[in-house]
Design a protein around this nucleic acid. Structure first.
Length: 338
DNA sequence: AAGCCGGGGAT
DNA sequence: ATCCCAGGCTT
């Protein structure tokens, strides 16, 4: 069967390359327990290794096992997550940990199906956890693999499209080895991260360049295809800065929407006759552009009643809470109290 | 199928 | 400025 030859060749060459040139010292590789791999995989969703590196060890120090995470308060978890972005991941992880306490005797389940049922875990993440912690060969399809496979198999189109994604999953399955599932998953990602990069791929060093479709046709720069880009919607955000001596008033964001469940500055409208507009901050997200106007409220102003919790914090303490970056920046540039 | 959800790094 | 990153969830 030709597909077996493909799998053997591809995986064997990749593994041989990885043994010598791969990354063997990432913090979640030692030991490769399910909990440690899970935390890493969630942090790594849409987030680069170079960023996650700074968060992973402190997070594990604070939440060394699944039970600790399940029993922790969401504020503690959000604080540890602060700066990583996509904060819903932290909420999902907390809920997943509690579900594991109820349904799986306090451990992560050991089948992809059961993992898939947990919030925050899709097919790729489930397979990544199983393959790495149990050393079983299962296909994964993250940003690295989408690029590697689109090029090696010559799959055109934007991977966000269903039809393209289906082809990519099939290509991933066809290349699976019989053994060394954990090393193979890591090898695939290392190939994408270090050689088969978006720009300037190092095809001269690639172990699977010999039968790479993109290289044969010089299509490395065209594959994978890009999404059609759209204009970002613009959104205004008015934030209120209430000072009381060395304290500042913060408000919990709603559980849905941007910065879900995080502490932030209260949102509302200010009277420009009494409040002082600070410098407008532009904050880019994937799908929209925020124009944030912070309003310095007069000291005598009363804060309106809100539908989410309000809390006074000392300036210095507030910066330890885990605030969205623009909020941190606004607070950091406030003048010190007299 | 398309929209939503952050922040940082590279170019 | 623009693109991309160890994606998944919701509508």
């Amino acid at each position: 069967m030709p597909s077996c030859r493909l799998a053997d060749d591809f995986a064997a060459r990749l593994l041989a390359w990885w043994d010598e040139h791969g990354r063997h010292d990432l913090p979640w590789q030692h030991p490769r327990t399910a909990y440690r791999v899970w935390v890493a995989e969630i942090m790594l969703q849409q987030t680069q290794v170079s960023t996650v590196i700074h968060y992973y060890r402190p997070f594990l120090q604070r939440f060394p096992d699944l039970q600790t995470l399940a029993c922790a308060g969401i504020d503690d978890i959000m604080s540890a997550w602060s700066g990583l972005g996509y904060y819903r991941r932290a909420v999902h992880m907390h809920r997943a940990a509690q579900l594991c306490m109820q349904l799986h005797k306090g451990a992560l389940p050991t089948t992809a199906e059961a993992l898939l049922a947990l919030p925050g875990i899709g097919r790729s993440t489930a397979n990544a956890i199983i393959s790495q912690s149990l050393d079983l060969p299962l296909p994964i399809l993250d940003g690295n693999l989408k690029r590697v496979l689109a090029r090696h198999a010559g799959i055109a189109g934007w991977p966000g499209e269903r039809s393209v994604e289906r082809k990519l999953w099939l290509a991933a399955e066809l290349r699976l080895p019989q053994h060394r599932g954990a090393d193979y998953a890591q090898a695939c990602m290392d190939l994408g991260a270090t050689l088969c990069r978006r720009r300037q791929p190092r095809c001269g060093d690639c172990p699977v360049a010999g039968d790479c479709h993109a290289l044969q046709l010089s299509q490395q720069d065209e594959l994978p295809g890009r999404r059609q880009r759209r204009a970002k919607t613009q959104r205004q955000l008015q934030l209120l800065v209430y000072r009381r001596g060395d304290q500042i008033l913060l408000q919990k964001r709603p559980a849905i929407g941007i910065w879900a469940s995080m502490w932030s500055l209260p949102e509302g409208t200010a009277d420009p006759r009494s409040a002082q507009a600070m410098q407008v901050i532009r904050h880019e997200l994937t799908h929209l552009q925020l124009h944030i106007t912070p309003w310095l409220m007069p000291e005598t102003a009363e804060c309106m009643v809100a539908d989410t919790p309000l809390q006074w914090y000392k300036l210095r303490e507030s910066l330890q809470l885990g605030l969205p970056k623009p909020i941190r920046d606004i607070i950091a540039q406030l003048p010190e109290p007299d």
